[in-house]
Amino acid sequence: MATAAIEKARGVGVRIAGLHRAFQEVGAVIDGVDLDIAPGEFVALLGPSGCGKSTLLRLVAGLDRPDAGAITLTSPAHDGGVAFVFQDAHLLPWRNVVDNAALPLELEGVGATERRSRARAVLADLGLGEAGALLPRELSGGMRMRVSLARALVTGPALLLLDEPFAALDELNRQRLDDQLRTLWSRLGLTVLFVTHSVDEATYLADRAIVLSSRPARVVLDRSLDLPAARDVGLRSEPNFARECHTLRDALERGGA
């Protein structure tokens, strides 16, 4: 029913070659990272905290420039753009839910009626159909994060970047949002780059996991997960899930040492 709500966008590929980034205070944060992400892939970026995952994500988004190397988006015919979801919801506190979700369209110059109806449709998709007129401070943490996700999806992006988006939520809310994200991804076919420090969440969500070392970040492991495409809570009790988790944790420990 609401499936048509979010504009169907084909994912974009991301090619990262010889990436370096250093900051004056801490030195090299990313030291020679090469990655090739196919259009429509769901990739989890895993690494110890402070390893440079967020820096990598900001570089891909174009919010920061590399010192060396290049990031190319292999653009599909329909360019849906890049969307970013932060660690916290970061909503405009003076705007209601609909106008927060419609913000990207507003900045791109879409008229009020159209952008609101598109925002309402995405919100309904995320189970926030009734909350449109509420202000952020009237929402729970999980609802705020959902509005933030709606804001990212409203433009029909080809690449969705998420920086530990659900880390601050309780277990139940996090599980629910993980499921919603995975469902939306399989329906929309966009490329997702999901940064997390949770092995469990990375395994549950992604088709491919990339484990980064502690600072400066290098790729320790790049692995396609041997798991079925359809994910639900039952997945966690399967032996393959435990095996994949173990492999990733192992790589994480190697990278941290």
Binding site: G62, L63, A83, H90, L92, L103, P104, L107, E108, T155
Partner: peptide
């Protein structure tokens, strides 16, 4: 909020839009 500044930047907001809306 610096994150919101980034967001405005990401969507190509004009200087004026950033001023009046953020």
């Amino acid at each position: 909020d610096p994150a919101l500044r980034d967001l405005f930047h990401l969507y190509g907001a004009s200087r004026l839009a950033t001023l009046t809306k953020l």
